[in-house]
Simulated scan of single mutants.
Amino acid sequence: GDRTGFGGRRYETVRLGSRSFDDAFDDYLGFLEPFLMESRRLLKPSGSLYLHLDYREAHYAKVLLDEIFGRECFVNEIIWAYDYGGRTKKRWPAKHDTILFYAKDPERNLFNADEVERIPYMAPGLVGAEKAARGKLPTDVWWHTIVSPTGKEKLGYPTQKPLGVLKRIVSASSPPGGLVVDLVAGSGTAGAAALELGRRFVLADRSEEAFTVMRKRFAGEAGVEFRGVEASSE
C-alpha cells in the first residue's frame, strides 16, 4: 500500500472513477479516515457530521469516529429501515442501514427539532386528537423507502439516497442559509435537499459518473456551478 490508515494499517489509493464506490477495500476505514478528518476540520462549532453506512462497516466506523471526534461527540446511531428488495431465507433479511450522527461541539451543536417534518403516530388513538393531528418528532429509527429502481426520483446512480432522508438531516442540523457539505456526494441528494430547504451547499466526488448525474440534476438551477471538472457533461 502507499498510505497509512487507521490503526497504522497500510492501504492502496483506489481510483474511484466508476459508477459507485466499491466497499471491498482492503482497508475501508483507511479510505474513510481522511474524509472524516477533513470533515471535522471544516465544521463550525455548531456543526454536525452524518455518516451513512451499511451493517458491515458501521461498528468499525464508530470506533474511528470516536477517535477523530471524541466519544463525547457521539449523538445518535440512526437506523434507517426499509422494506424493499429480495429476502434471504438463510438469516434475518438485512433491511436497514446505519447513520452515525456526531457533533463538533456537543455543547454548541445546532439541532432544529421544530424544523423537522413530523410523522404520524403508530397508535394515534392512544395520544389524543390534538397530538395525533400534529404528529410526532421522528425517533432514531427512520422508516423510509429506498429510491425505487423504477420510480420518478431515480436518476440512474446506483447508491442514490432518498430525498426525504436527506431533507430530514438538513432541516435538523443546519440553519436557513447555512452551508451543507458532502465530500462523497454521489448523485447529489444532499445538495438537492439543501437547495429545496434554502441552504447553500458544496458537493465533492471522485467519480466521473457522479458528476455526470449531478450536472443533469442541477441543470438550470441558478447559482449552481461546477469547479475542478470539465464543463462538458459528456
Rank of each mutant, 00 (worst) to 15 (best):
R10A: 08
R91A: 05
K161G: 01
G30A: 02
G228M: 01
A172V: 04
E115H: 12
R206S: 14
S48T: 15
W80G: 08
P45N: 14
S207G: 11
P93Y: 12
I79D: 01
Y84H: 07
L53W: 03
A81L: 07
L183K: 09
L53K: 07
R3M: 04
L166F: 04
L179Q: 04
A210C: 04
F211G: 00
T4W: 05
P138C: 01
G5E: 00
G17C: 02
R217T: 10
R168T: 05
E130S: 11
Y157S: 14
V127W: 01
G151T: 05
A24T: 03
L126S: 13
S18D: 12
L100P: 13
D205T: 08
R9G: 05
S46P: 11
Q160N: 05
D22G: 03
D66G: 13
T145C: 06
D2L: 06
F69T: 09
G186V: 10
D26K: 02
F201N: 13
V147H: 05
L51T: 02
P124E: 08
E209K: 13
G30N: 10
L32T: 06
A190Q: 10
A210Q: 05
K89N: 11
V181T: 06
L179G: 06
R71I: 07
G8P: 07
V170D: 09
R199K: 03
G164H: 12
R10F: 10
S187Y: 03
A204I: 13
F101P: 05
A129P: 15
E57F: 04
E57L: 15
L179I: 08
V229P: 06
L126D: 12
L51P: 01
F201L: 01
M122L: 10
N109W: 14
